[in-house]
Design a protein around this nucleic acid. Structure first.
Length: 217
DNA sequence: AACCAGGAGAGAG
DNA sequence: CTCTCTCATGGT
């Protein structure tokens, strides 16, 4: 794995799938809310929850921070883990609103935004990096389960490689390119959904000719 | 009808 | 530090 073949992988994905235009959100608040709701959950189920939040006027951190847990729960039930997620939305929104007033001010003023997000209960590395990359426009490459699976198969790196180490590796190879980080992650998700499953579809995979992993037929 | 989805936290060893 | 368990709805 080096900068050159990493870019080749991206170029190949992009030419196959086209620009993905992630994250599908109208506002930064909506983006951050979606990041919490999609934890180990399919995006389709998240969309229903977001729609319900919008109809209840809860699709902003300010309103979420003022809403009751019971009301939030009703809107986010379709996204699964709804009790946890209602609490997480409440905690996160309250933290941002009380300490900074808005998400935009948080990104602008926080000295160590990633560490600060990680200190909030319910915000882990992937959720934090998603918010930083797509809402904050900051260069944090997201390492999700798909990224680990795709990179381990394509480049032969071990699946156990820790989040921060793999992220550091990518950061060193693709220095601070926000639009690239954004679309690359989206492309990886698209590839994983279509081809790089547990039962892989390598024969049809656009990365087959570069990939270290070969399916047993 | 088992399996998985754009994870995180807590506890055990 | 690395497993393992829990949280839970909805689509295939």
């Amino acid at each position: 794995m080096n900068g050159k073949n990493l870019l080749l992988i991206y170029a190949t994905l992009r030419s196959n799938f086209g620009f993905q235009n992630w994250w599908p959100a109208e506002t930064n608040d909506e983006m951050a809310i979606g990041a919490i709701l999609t934890q180990n959950t399919s995006w389709k189920n998240v969309e229903k929850a977001i729609k319900s939040l919008r109809e209840s006027g809860l699709l902003s951190l300010k309103n979420l921070s003022k809403a009751s847990i019971a009301k939030i729960r009703k809107s986010v039930r379709s996204s699964g883990f709804y009790k946890q997620k209602a609490e997480r939305l409440k905690l996160f929104s309250s933290y941002i609103v009380l300490n900074y007033g808005s998400l935009e001010k948080f990104f602008k003023k926080s000295k160590r935004p990633r560490e600060e997000l990680l200190s909030i209960k319910g915000i882990g590395k992937e959720t934090a990096d998603s918010m930083l990359l797509y809402a904050g426009k900051m260069p944090y490459f997201i390492i999700d389960t798909y990224t680990v699976r795709v990179f381990s198969r394509v480049f032969g790196i071990k699946e156990g490689l820790a989040y921060d180490k793999l992220q550091e590796k990518v950061h060193n190879l693709l220095a601070g390119n926000v639009p690239l980080y954004q679309d690359f992650h989206a492309q990886i998700v698209e590839l994983a959904k279509r081809f790089c499953k547990k039962k892989p579809l390598c024969t049809a995979c656009p990365l087959a000719k570069f990939c270290a992993y070969k399916a047993k037929s």
